[in-house]
Nucleic acid binder design. Structure first.
Lengths: 214, 214
DNA sequence: CCTATTATAGATCGATCAGTACAGATTGTT
DNA sequence: AACAATCTGTACTGATCGATCTATAATAGG
């Protein structure tokens, strides 16, 4: 039989696209959270009915887990690219600029970050999934920290600053995600990124010039 | 009878403390979100039964609204004090330090900020309440902006920086709240506050000098 | 064609949801 | 003591929840 290669499995073929369905489910979970999304909401958005969903994905929590996985996979792929930039500062800037674009994407019905939405609404899921979601959020900070460590080795950054910088920009990232849901537009959030990469403004009376702030 | 002064209302007196009950409800809403919190969860935590809750607070959404009001009232009171500091920078520092303490308070079973939790889990509430929650979040940024405007008039800050600074520190605030839920400890978040009030670290070997991005 | 296998569709399951009816309990007023 | 008013506790409502049963449709291998 040599199955397992998912070749031509006998039987009626699936009448929907799994990834499209996951995208539909993600939209609903993103907008309503885990508890707020009902099976009716989900299957409607997925374009399938209940038994098809259960056969293909297991149950509601499994479906949630799979949408989350799909989301983080796409995200971490981009993250990897950005962290490949020559300097850590360029890397961070790429990450943050891209974040602003995504968080404020008008094509994205729900602003912000699906992963963060998940972390705030996963109170009623299994401990394992909860832990998995938590790990996911540490991933960004961890990736940044590794990138900054490399920058230290390269002489781009002073020693001992990797962990602090990683945490700082993780906070910026997450703050941007929330602010995007709270009315922050693309231009405004871009200014925040500018500032996060700059410094506290000089005293007024004089100066301002070099720091500029625009 | 000149009622309305809520004096000695005839009838059996209420057997519970309204504010204690609201605190119990807040804990549940904070942990589970609006959809995730069931009436059983809520009344258990409030120490009362269903009819008492409905008689005293209206319905689930009203209860949610009242816990939120109670939360923001306490918060805005402290905020007002902090913004009264001599300089805007002191004000911001007080706000952020206090935020870190609250977000990471071990007595607080749920980390982070209840208001932000609300913004992420209010998809299934009425549009009015949703709007009210949104306004609430703009309030911090607005208060900061006014404080920075005053600082500009005082000559503490360069002209035209109020809106940007307000948005920047609002992002920091909200990022801290989320990071507190994602494992960030008190020491780590305090370092982030330090950095938010400082500047990007100097280059180690040479410089990236004026390049400065953007 | 026949059988095995898998997916779809509608109906339905027990459990739980938010909300309430009703009877008893506790107060102030007369 | 009697009454009106208010709160509490139990049990219940219809609706909806997540999940499944059953029947039928569609495919592959024989």
């Amino acid at each position: 039989m040599k199955d397992s290669i998912q070749k031509t499995s006998a039987g009626r073929p699936r009448g929907f696209d799994v990834e499209k369905a996951l995208d539909g489910a993600m939209r609903v979970f993103w907008q309503k959270g885990f508890d707020g999304a009902s099976l009716t909401d989900l299957t409607d958005a997925m374009g399938i009915n209940r038994p098809s969903m259960y056969a293909a994905f297991g149950n509601k929590e499994d479906l949630y887990s799979k949408t989350m996985e799909r989301y983080v996979e796409a995200r971490s792929q981009h993250l990897g690219e950005y962290l490949g930039a020559p300097t850590s500062r360029e890397s961070v800037e790429l990450v943050l600029r891209d974040a602003v674009m995504r968080f404020t994407d008008p094509n994205n019905p729900n602003g912000g970050c699906f992963g963060m939405q998940g972390a705030m609404t996963c109170a009623n899921v299994s401990p394992q999934l909860k832990e998995h979601i938590e790990d996911m959020h540490v991933a960004l900070e961890k990736a940044l920290r590794q990138r900054f460590s490399r920058a230290i080795d390269d002489g781009e950054l002073p020693r001992g600053s990797a962990a602090d910088l990683a945490r700082f920009y993780a906070v910026i990232y997450q703050g941007l995600a929330f602010q995007a849901k709270a009315g922050g537009g693309r231009r405004e959030l871009s200014r925040v990124v500018d500032m996060a990469l700059e410094k506290w403004p000089r005293q007024s009376s004089k100066v301002s010039k070099a720091s500029s702030f625009r």
